[in-house]
Design a protein around this nucleic acid. Structure first.
Lengths: 235, 235
DNA sequence: TATTAATGTATCACTATGAAACAATAGTAA
DNA sequence: TTACTATTGTTTCATAGTGATACATTAATA
């Protein structure tokens, strides 16, 4: 296992991705834990010399989750000096590699482009990369202390997601193909962090004209069965 | 005049700024024209090794306009491969410098962070930098062909400005200290690109509670004189 | 067949908004 | 002084959207 090659990647440029998933109850994000350090961080990566930025992020997401063609949104670029922390990066590498050179491009300052994605929690097989020994889902309400400015990045991502939720009908990838109105509402509540009125939520969603109603779902409960819906596929 | 030093700046990282001004009638942006090439581009710059990104952009804005403490908003980071155009950069440098090395960090690929600013058109003394022989205002409706992906960047900036206009009461810096309701409306119309209903516009602005009403402005016209307003300064 | 619990829909009050009318007023001209 | 005009400030009205609540429907169970 060798260090990433400095001629293959653009120096000083990174991306970090905040990957949201929905457990059926709570909103989660994917976090990595580095080998032998107890340190957590957002999954991120670097941009190859001849690779578009968006493509680099997609590649990283696919490598880590196995998912392709996912709604990915760039939300902010982080370039403060608090980001610079060569000591931490050195320890991460030293915990993994026998020999770490005294100077390396990974120790230098990075400007990081933040992206977020929304994916179906149930379809993910998170794979740790070479630097981390675990990658797992964490409650957005219980995010541990993260490296660098990653806690701030998570905050910003959530903020962006909340304010743009309606416009972007984001839930597309957070739910399975077919879902009930209640499940859709739970997604909204998990993201916005507050209860929604059931009747009004239903009215609003139906009025948007983006839902297709299918057969009912008989779950066995002694009550009216809900309809299943899917998102209208624009032709 | 020497080329910028590669040890002083972060390679591969640039910013471009779309600086909006209001002429009293139309929305304008600042564009630079490079020496002896007839080429136009957005004013932009590079980030120093120990300088926060935001600070770099503020420094550039101040250098070019003399204005400080201006509303600056980051809106998108551009990282496609169409951005790469070493030939154009070479010609720009050659038109200015006697000797240009065959290899230079300015010829390599840049990822650029886009910012926009809103400033008082009348307070600006635009100063060309060493690479450009003019910097001037252009109508947003009549932007000439720009270098690299700068036309796309302008589009994105306008889009962002339009969709966030209400939330951010941006006009703060586009108008003089005191202004009439009509002038405020003209700013909105110039940005949104469409007429607003006078009565409804007034009602909405007043209901926001961000305006302070002052004395009337007697312009000499044979009609009712308008009030002057300023933006409420939160204490 | 009554009961229960969840779902689908309707109602009502209130607010926001577009369109239009009305009212006020600073100057000009008779 | 008195119309007249142009612009500004305000009101009115119809309509659409929204929060809160009630009502109606229905799948299973007792």
């Amino acid at each position: 296992m060798s260090l990433p090659d400095s001629t293959q990647y653009l120096p000083h440029i990174a991306y970090d991705s905040v990957i949201f998933g929905f457990s059926g109850e709570k909103l989660k994000i994917l976090l990595m834990e580095y080998h032998n350090t107890g340190w957590f961080a957002l999954p991120g990566g670097f941009v190859k010399v001849n690779e578009p930025l968006d493509e680099a992020v997609n590649r990283g997401l696919k490598e880590r989750t196995g998912l392709d063609q996912i709604y990915l949104e760039q939300f902010h670029t982080f370039g403060s000096l608090e980001r610079v922390n060569p000591e931490a990066m050195r320890k991460i590498l030293e915990a993994q590699h026998k020999e770490v050179p005294s100077r390396h491009w990974l120790f230098e300052r990075f400007i990081s482009v933040g992206y977020y994605a929304l994916i179906d929690y149930t379809k993910v097989e998170a794979k740790p990369d070479s630097l981390s020994d675990s990658i797992d889902w964490y409650d957005v309400g219980e995010v541990p202390q993260l490296l660098f400015d990653h806690n701030y990045i998570v905050e910003k991502a959530l903020e962006h997601l909340r304010t743009h939720l309606d416009q972007k009908l984001l839930s597309v990838n957070l739910l399975p193909e077919r879902f009930t109105m209640k499940e859709l509402q739970q997604v909204y509540e998990a993201i916005l962090g507050e209860k929604q009125n059931r009747a009004n939520f239903q009215r609003k969603m139906l009025s948007l004209g983006i839902l297709e109603r299918h057969e009912k779902l008989y779950s066995g409960g002694s009550h009216k069965a809900p309809f299943l819906y899917s998102f209208h596929t624009r032709s």
